[in-house]
C-alpha cells in the first residue's frame, strides 16, 4: 500500500520496526525503507527540535548524535538504526537547566533566527566530547558541517570558546 506524501513522493506504509535508544529511552520506530532518521524523529516520535533544512547533508540543521558521533540525520535511513543510541537536542539540557553549550550560545548572542541552533549545539557537544579544549581553528574546522544562514559564525565560534574557558 502506498500513500502520497506532502512532497508528492510515494510513501509506502510503514513496514519495518526498529528499536532505537533515543535520548536514553528505548523507542520502537515503525518506518518504511526510505524514511530518513530525520523524518522518523520528527514525525512518529514528535522530536521536532531536530530541524529539516537542505535534506541532502549540507546544512547541518538536522544534526544528531548516533552512538556519540555527529550525524546528518537526513543522510541515514531510519531502518538501519536499530540498536543505535541517538541523542537529539531534546536530550541535551532542560528548560530549567541549560547545558553549558546552550547557556554559552545564549550569553554570547550566538542565536539569530535560531533555525540552525539545535544542529550547532549538537555538533559542539560532539566536538567537546572528542576535544575538550579546541583551538579556534579546530572549532571552525569541526563546524564545517553546519551552516548559519544568518551568517552569525563569529558569535557561534565565540560561544564555543566561552564553554571551554
Amino acid at each position: 500500500m502506498t500513500a502520497v506524501s506532502a512532497n508528492g513522493g510515494n510513501r509506502p506504509a510503514a513496514s519495518i520496526s526498529v528499536t532505537v535508544s533515543v535520548n536514553g529511552r528505548r523507542r520502537v520506530i515503525d518506518c518504511s525503507p526510505g524514511d530518513t532518521l530525520l523524518e522518523a524523529l520528527r514525525s512518529p516520535l514528535g522530536l521536532t527540535g531536530t530541524k529539516s533544512g537542505c535534506e541532502i547533508g549540507y546544512c547541518g540543521a538536522c544534526t544528531v548524535l548516533v552512538d556519540g558521533a555527529a550525524a546528518h540525520s537526513c543522510c541515514l535511513l531510519a531502518a538501519t538504526m536499530d540498536g543505535r543510541e541517538v541523542t537529539t537536542i531534546e536530550g541535551i539540557g532542560t528548560a530549567e537547566g541549560l547545558d553549558p553549550v546552550q547557556a554559552a550560545f545564549l550569553e554570547t548572542g550566538a542565536v539569530q533566527c535560531g533555525y540552525c541552533t539545535p544542529g550547532f549545539v549538537v555538533s559542539v557537544k560532539a566536538l567537546l566530547a572528542e576535544n575538550p579544549a579546541p583551538s579556534e581553528a579546530e572549532i571552525r574546522r569541526y563546524l564545517t558541517g553546519n551552516i548559519c544562514r544568518c551568517s552569525g559564525f563569529a558569535a557561534i565560534v565565540r560561544a564555543v570558546a566561552a564553554v571551554t574557558r
Binding site: 558521533a69 555527529a70 543522510c75 541515514l76 564545517t144 558541517g145
Partner: peptide, 9 residues
C-alpha cells in the same frame, strides 16, 4: 572530506 558528520559514516 566534507565535515566530521560525513566522515563519521
Amino acid at each position: 572530506v566534507g565535515s566530521p558528520h560525513v566522515r563519521n559514516f
